[in-house]
């Protein structure tokens, strides 16, 4: 069993699944739209055709991954990925509600720890420098509409 599994070309498998999933999501989302004819194309005609092509490519790429050549996906760093994604999401949730300064500080703080070498003092210095610098450029200089800190 393992001998068979080893021959999988994992990048191809990932790509194939990605194409298939997106293709099916697109088809699902387009299900209620008018398709139309070649002469009078409806909103769904072209995207639906593309989605079918994508599904076909996904099937092909996914299927060929089982014929090798064997290859794995390379190194993963789940901690970094999760921290980076959460840092951005936390920023998105907080900037409007509690203000740019705390939002940006959280983003820098959380994302800094995506690297295992992060040191408390360095992170603190980064936070201060980056927040002051970007606030000066974007909110001060370019006039982006964001509260620095919303009153509690």
């Amino acid at each position: 069993m393992t001998a068979r599994a080893i021959r999988i070309n994992q990048p191809d498998l990932v790509a194939g699944i990605m194409f298939l999933v997106v293709g099916f999501i697109a088809l699902w989302e387009l299900r209620d739209l008018h398709v139309g004819t070649l002469q009078e194309m409806g909103p769904a005609y072209f995207p639906r055709a593309l989605a079918f092509v994508l599904v076909a490519i996904g099937l092909y790429v996914g299927a060929r991954s089982f014929r090798g050549p064997m290859q794995d996906l390379g190194r993963f760093n789940i901690r970094a990925t999760v921290l980076i994604v959460s840092a951005v999401l936390v920023f998105a949730v907080t900037v409007n509600r509690i203000g740019y300064v705390p939002g940006a500080a959280l983003l820098v703080a959380i994302s800094s720890f995506a690297d295992t070498d992060a040191r408390m003092r360095q992170v603190a210095v980064s936070i201060v420098c980056l927040v002051v610098f970007t606030a000066a450029i974007f909110i001060g200089g370019l006039g982006v509409q964001l509260p620095l800190i919303r009153g509690f």
Binding site: I84, A87, V88, F91, A92, V95, Y100, A104, L107, V108, S111, S112, A114, D115, D117, A118, Q122, S126, L130, T134, F138, L142, V144, Q145, L146
Partner: peptide, 20 residues
């Protein structure tokens, strides 16, 4: 490790600034 948080912050505020 000092660079990527800066890039990330720059991207986020940049993106925000386009459509608020």
């Amino acid at each position: 490790r000092l660079m990527f948080p800066a890039i990330l912050l720059f991207c986020c505020i940049g993106i925000y600034s386009i459509n608020n």
